[in-house]
Design a protein around this nucleic acid. Sequence first.
DNA 1: AAAGTGACAGCCG
DNA 2: ACGGCTGCCACTT
Length: 96
Amino acid sequence: MDEELHERVRDIIKTIPSGRVSTYGDIAAAAGASTPRLVGRILSEDGHDLPWHRVLRASGIPAPHLVHRQLELLRAEGVLADGQRIDLRRYRWEGP
DNA sequence: AAAGTGACAGCCG
DNA sequence: ACGGCTGCCACTT
């Protein structure tokens, strides 16, 4: 049914440039999703081919089970973490 | 039908 | 600044 929403979420994530990040909440808002949880669910099911590592929690810390791997991928793009936390004020992608 | 679950977020102490 | 609580919504038991 909500194939629409599903694709919108995927498209938005594809637009995040290398070296920048976004949050579940921002993506949910941009895609018109009713809750950020949906973004997480879509990523877990159908996010393998997307730059999923550029999506963080509102705190700037990645989802718990992924922290290590995700911070590594981000570091490779020049996104540096202070401990486990990314500075959103610096790297957050606000759209074009 | 009710309760549990999860890649979340905001408020409060 | 951080843990705890509560609201959230689609899915599964």
